[in-house]
């Protein structure tokens, strides 16, 4: 089945089986491995991407359902070689250990800050409640998102990061 999707502003076309999950389409067909494939059961949120600007779990959506839609993945967070404040926040605050949950956390955090630039700690914790981290106990992740909220214009380039 033919699908046409835009991923991080770039158009892609592919002929795929209807049963192919969006996360596998992104990772295996498009070879974009930033989006992680985690629990496979809609629990962990490692596979979070945006579909038409809404963060969703890409293990629980068929790629054919994304036909004609615009996808954003973690690879699209940095703009013009400059890290997104969320990415820099995770760096500044040690917001990750193993890094497995990080792409999903950051996509969710960016979406949260776009809608609510100054969230309370409770709002941040609620915002990432669909993303599971088994390393950090969330403290530094919350701090990283708070850092991003306080520093909306991060300045670290990808090259030096």
């Amino acid at each position: 089945m033919q699908v046409n999707v835009t991923v991080n502003g770039v158009e892609h076309a592919a002929d795929i089986e209807p049963r192919l999950l969006l996360v596998h389409f992104i990772r295996d067909e498009l070879q974009m491995r930033g989006t992680h494939w985690g629990c496979d059961t809609s629990n962990c949120g490692a596979c979070t991407v945006w579909v038409d600007d809404e963060p969703v779990k890409s293990c629980t959506m068929l790629a054919v359902q994304a036909h004609g839609k615009s996808i954003a993945t973690v690879e699209g967070l940095a703009k013009g070689g400059v890290l997104d404040p969320v990415q820099q926040g995770f760096m500044e605050c040690h917001g990750l250990q193993c890094g497995y949950c990080t792409p999903g956390m950051m996509m969710c955090a960016r979406a949260l800050l776009d809608r609510n630039p100054h969230p309370s700690e409770e709002e941040i914790r609620e915002g990432i409640s669909g993303n599971i981290c088994r390393c950090t106990g969330y403290k530094n992740i919350v701090a990283a998102i708070q850092w991003a909220a306080e520093n909306p214009a991060a300045t670290v380039s990808e090259v030096t990061a």
Binding site: P55, G127, G130
Partner: peptide, 8 residues
């Protein structure tokens, strides 16, 4: 569920 699931 959670905000991501509620989005879909």
């Amino acid at each position: 569920a959670d905000p991501l699931v509620r989005n879909r």
